[in-house]
Design a protein around this nucleic acid. Structure first.
Lengths: 127, 127
DNA sequence: CTTTTATTTAACCTATTGGTTAAATAGTCG
DNA sequence: CGACTATTTAACCAATAGGTTAAATAAAAG
């Protein structure tokens, strides 16, 4: 049905790959640079990059002997769009939780409640 | 590191499971009800549900001989929160795309089309 | 030309995934 | 009780994932 989302979510399911994306959010990096923080071998990194590339989460250039990677955000936006379909549902859950806390907790100082730091309803501006 | 996100994204990587979640967004359902739209066997559905349950994306009750499933939105919120870190990035990408289109669409600007073996796909992915 | 650096491919291993069918478990009902 | 319904477990299978080490390729440097 949607192999795009399949690949995107599958790619995001690995902590190494998420860390790589986090690193790339700071800017381009070569394979060796990306591999540096990890305890795994370079071929393993290379295959993680291939997974990310196949999911279109990164793009790669050829600069001399380097193959710098850059983040491609669009699949992330697609994934976020899919999740947005459920936003009202979890807001509703949080409302119920807040309501519950309201009923059960008198006034014992500020608990760990952050009232809707997001936009309240699915309508949002994301140009 | 974050087995929560690992499991959430891994669970979301399967189209059958995403469809199950979409169905559950409409309300509780039994295993048989959930299985009905799919061409796969009931044990297969049962294991998909186990994956969703392990990822805390659904919760299950025991009502007589039924084990109704209900959506648990919190992991979806966590996943969305993770993706949010990249929101500014893809907004920025869209800005760059708009800028690029602005530059290239009206008149023909100079093409720096170097004879690279592999070109980084700058815009859309092709699948 | 030879060596070094960057990266990928090959070959292999083990664990997990997603599916199957057959059997087991558990609750409902005539 | 005995049969029917709902769901899970068991046993199996093929494909994929994620890791390894060793070797291959490509560009840069000496």
């Amino acid at each position: 049905m949607s192999p795009n989302l399949d690949r995107t979510f599958a790619a995001l399911a690995d902590p190494t790959r998420r860390a790589i994306l986090a690193r790339l959010a700071l800017g381009q990096a070569s394979v060796t640079e990306l591999a540096e923080p990890f305890a795994i071998s370079l071929p393993a990194i290379s295959r993680h990059l291939k997974v990310l590339e196949r999911a279109a989460l990164i793009s790669r250039a050829a600069e001399g002997q380097f193959r710098p990677c850059a983040l491609t955000a669009d699949p992330l936006r697609q994934a976020s769009d899919w999740l947005d379909h459920y936003r009202q549902f979890w807001n509703q859950s949080l409302d119920r939780l807040a309501e519950h806390l309201e009923r059960t907790t008198p006034k014992e100082g500020p608990r760990h409640d952050r009232p809707n730091r997001r936009r309240p309803s699915p309508g949002r501006n994301r140009n």
